[in-house]
Write a protein that binds this DNA or RNA. Structure first.
Lengths: 198, 198, 198, 198
DNA sequence: GATGAATGAGAGTTCATTCAT
DNA sequence: CATGAATGAACTCTCATTCAT
């Protein structure tokens, strides 16, 4: 890789980071390209060498952040080593929630911008197939599920939505107090989809 | 109520309606106050006699729309007449989902803008205490629940989030096919919170 | 007419005049809307209350200037009182050339921007039908012409094109020395189209 | 001529051709140096090794195109072999009009950009003295003319201006129908300048 | 010679807000 | 109360030009 290419990649990452700072502190609508360029220490025109416009940047940022989050969570599950699908899913969610708690701006940004459609697009662009990874988890120990994709969808939407105000505003309760009940609900949902052998 | 006041109320409602049309068709960011005033047939300056700015209007609109939706759902439950809390909650959700299906713009608008905090503010401003109403439903037949408020929060967040892409994009499936599984999940969540007697 | 309307009309005329000054001194391409607004003593945004963009203004300006020019020339012919069509046409051209000589910027502006198509559009928008007026001149004394419209087209294009460098740069000769030869050519063209009575 | 110089000349011609394509399809104002360089397959910076700026290129292009056109027309006249000056001038104009008809973009480009001054500059820069060539034609058979240069000027301006909308828009008629009348006018102009021998 | 990343001035345009009528 | 002309800051995006490689 040439010096120039390397330099460009670094500058792109710098722009993504700067934009994330600004998007999460002032909001996307109130963040101008001038702001981003200035904060990143480049000329306004340079921005357009890297992104088509603010929304191009936004999309690339979502993809990037979602991917980092998932990579971390999948790794956490693998390190934990349990073979029970339910426990692995809970561990996955727990890791994600912990990350969100650590950086609530990430939650605010992803949650406000991540739709199911965007999520899938992000997964497509990624090198690793995270969805497939999650499906492998669900099949651990030979377990099978009714309407597996819908179950996943339900869980993702529930956790994504419910975590928002809990993490950001501790409303209606704080995360530590909500987690047991949230996980109990997740287990109940999984139970409702489980195919019993016998 | 004087004629003047009446006239004012009518103009305000006209502005709210116009804004809803524009917000849901062009998006809030791309709707200008000029647009709203012009569409509503008033002068730009007049807008400021009714709202502080676009975001003041937006908030009042959310509250208004959420209230209409809830009033309708509560009435639907009362007309149905079942005494089983679970069935009543399902009926309530079913009515809301049906309304959303009928007017997906409403879903898009509320979902993108309604947070738990805003929802509670809306409820506070309303004349009827809908939350109390729901709690009465939950207590039908003397039933009691662990962490009743958290259970409600969980259900509302789940249904709100999961309905979005299902209703608007039929993704991952269409609403009719998703409903049974969604309701099964809701029942599972309630089951997980139920206090058994005896 | 209300005070406001009057004021607006005056401001529009002021903008047209300012734009003409700038267009003819710096060229259209190098004249920005900022320039026009600043020179006219209004805010940049105000420009857009009067014109869609620079090219809207330009077109309105061409129409306006062409109309003034023609009105003047037609009046000059009528005051002169000759009945010979050839002499009347020459008088018409002479008046236009004199005006151009008086304000060469006008020539530069019109010539660079007036095509046959634009000219006809301008005539359409005008209240008076100048083309019709010219045709009446040609028919004075019962005179008839072969391909009358083509003859007119030829004369207009010749005079328009040939006057440009003569008036603006006295190149290849100055206007006074060129006029006799130009008019001799015009008469020759007319002669070539004349229908002789028999 | 060294390899390097040859290479440079080829690159310059490539730039001229590319610019002509772009100028005539998008217009000069909307063609950027980036566009030209990209289309020509060179780096933006390289452009400046060949031309000072867009307008330098534009001027060189006009000169080049005008010269090609005239060379072709002069050759056509020489091949035809008539000795009558009038017929030779008509043949010259006919060839130019035919070329314009074949490539209307050429007409649009030259006509919008060629003034008498630029034309003469082009002729000066050329190796062959086309003006002298034309004067020789006029003197064929010992014919003499009053104000010969003004006559030429008049004819060139007439044909240049009148061909524009006829060729490009078939307005007010198409070229084939206009030609007889145009040539009749040209002959009338020449007649008006002819010195009859006694 | 050739490159193309970087620059930054400046173009066009929009719009919330004000205020004289 | 209502108006809408006027404002001017702020925005997005373009592009000629430079210069280190």
């Amino acid at each position: 890789m040439g010096k120039v290419t390397e330099n460009k990649q670094q500058k792109e990452r710098s722009l993504l980071n700067t934009a994330f700072q600004l998007f999460t502190s002032k909001g996307i609508a109130k963040t101008s390209i001038s702001d981003i360029a200035q904060q990143a220490g480049i000329a306004k025109g340079t921005f357009y060498l890297y992104f088509r416009d603010k929304y191009d940047l936004q999309e690339r940022l979502i993809v990037h952040k979602a991917e980092v989050l998932f990579r971390h969570a999948i790794a956490a599950v693998q390190n934990q080593g349990s073979m029970d699908p339910e426990e692995q899913i809970i561990a996955l969610l727990d890791d994600i929630l912990t990350e969100m708690q650590r950086d609530p701006r990430l939650l605010r940004f992803i949650n406000k911008n991540l739709s199911w459609a965007v999520f899938r697009r992000a997964m497509d662009k990624s090198n690793v197939d995270y969805l497939c990874e999650v499906k492998r988890i669900l099949s651990s120990g030979g377990q099978q599920w009714q309407e597996q994709e819908l179950m996943l969808y339900t869980i993702i939407e529930l956790v994504g939505a419910a975590s928002y105000s809990v993490v950001l505003d501790q409303d209606p309760v704080d995360l530590e107090r909500y987690k047991p009940w949230l996980f109990r609900s997740v287990r109940a949902i999984m139970e409702a989809h489980r195919i019993r052998e016998g």
